[in-house]
Design a protein around this nucleic acid. Structure first.
Lengths: 135, 135
DNA sequence: CTAAACCTTGGAGCACACTCCAAAGTCAAG
DNA sequence: CTTGACTTTGGAGTGTGCTCCAAGGTTTAG
């Protein structure tokens, strides 16, 4: 498998594959006589592992750590569990933040009279949250 | 008001104030004889407007457009309403995405045996969503 | 008068995950 | 043998919103 083929089966670009190698997520594959990268199936698996981690919102750095553990022959379940638990907490915080924001936004949109709102009085205005009580 | 003072009352850094000027969110203020920026109260209001927009997740570019409208003396309510409505849709999409992700993550964490999980079999593994059915 | 604390500028750097480039080499089809 | 599609490399650029820097000028307190 050459780089474009790996990229294709894994659903990323060839540039991305090379990028992953640069940052240490993929180990340098063997090369053909002419210097082309020659991947085997495990590389595709590895890229899919990376994609899976990304879908969960893990950063490449974290995924790299999981891969490093896996490369020692040990199951990365334990660090993965910790990462995922931490990420879940982040996710919950983010969900709460967005939900609060959404509520505020709905209030603001409702409060927007649209016709004949007052000319720019300095100090108070449409966007700021502190303005929601205008109207 | 000099730059640090404006920064202080508005809750940002002096660098940030200068940055806003650079990117066109704050108009260049008058200068003292020695070249120091001299702000009046309206600048603080403007920075607060920016902060308000940011809290809602608007990008500086969007906030700049609102400010540009406001600078013409017209109320930016109408463009604001459009922006906010669009942003609300984004927010809803993001909320849905995160909620789905959260559910998947909980399933994955539950499925993690932690003790004695199998050694790295290539092809299937902890992180990928496609692995949730392992075990 | 001096020292500290401010101010000025243009430009670089950060985080993140790519994405694109030019210049050169390689490979397969026709 | 030529053409076109691939490959290689290091390095630069993208977007977002800052943040920090050096080298110099200004202001203020003691």
């Amino acid at each position: 498998m050459r780089v474009a083929e790996l990229a294709q089966v894994a659903g990323v670009s060839a540039d991305t594959v090379r990028y992953y190698e640069r940052v240490g997520l993929l180990r340098p594959p063997p090369r053909t006589a002419s210097g082309y990268r020659a991947y085997d199936e495990s590389a595709a698996d590895r890229v899919r592992f990376i994609q899976g981690g990304q879908r969960l919102g893990l950063r490449l750095r974290d995924i790299g750590e999981l891969l490093a553990v896996r490369d020692t022959g040990v199951c990365p379940c334990e660090p993965a569990e910790e990462l995922l638990t931490r990420r879940l907490a982040e996710l919950d915080a983010e969900l709460a933040r967005l939900a609060a924001l959404r509520a505020e936004m709905v209030r603001m949109i409702d409060a927007l009279p649209s016709p004949d709102c007052p000319p720019p009085e300095p100090g108070t205005w449409c966007p700021p949250g502190t303005d929601a009580e205008r109207r």
